[in-house]
């Protein structure tokens, strides 16, 4: 089991429950010590990050280190989430890596994602263990057990 500094929790944001289920399995199988939180809407994900709505007063909940964000969601989609996320207070965004996930084969989305500073990277679904491990080691510092 690897452990990374500041990577307490992985936030899975996808309206499709089965996709979240699969992604949870992948994260859990990556041999990285981290919590997984599944959320089915962009709005709720923002609430989670800012301890508002149904997450009010839950400052003790594991802090998200990586957000895996679906682009195509009903109502507020991935891009809308990014627009709102940009406006958040720095203290809510600190140490968060946003990864866009999509089933879309549209190269425009990829170009768009590359231009947005808040988006660390852009991946096609489904997530795989290798990609997740790579993101963890690229953006977070491993805590070596003495």
């Amino acid at each position: 089991m690897k452990k990374y500094k500041d990577l307490d929790c992985v936030l899975l944001v996808d309206d499709d429950i089965s996709t979240n289920f699969i992604h949870r399995r992948i994260v859990e199988n990556a041999k990285i010590d981290v919590n997984v939180k599944e959320i089915t809407s962009a709005k709720e994900a923002l609430d989670y990050l800012t301890y508002s709505g149904k997450y009010e007063g839950q400052e003790d909940a594991p802090k998200a280190g990586i957000v895996f964000l679906d682009i195509n969601m009903p109502g507020m989609n991935g891009w809308d989430f990014i627009a709102e996320y940009k406006k958040l207070d720095e203290k809510h965004k600190a140490r968060i890596v946003v990864v866009m996930l999509t089933t879309s084969l549209n190269p425009d989305d990829e170009q768009h994602a590359a231009m947005v500073e808040e988006i660390a990277t852009y991946l096609h679904k489904p997530l795989n263990i290798g990609a997740f491990a790579e993101i963890a080691s690229k953006y977070f510092e491993e805590i070596k057990e003495e």
């Binding site: 309206d15 429950i17 089915t40 809407s41 969601m73 009903p74 109502g75």
Partner: peptide, 8 residues
């Protein structure tokens, strides 16, 4: 296929 609410 555009929806405003989750299927739940």
């Amino acid at each position: 296929f555009q929806r405003l609410h989750s299927t739940t």
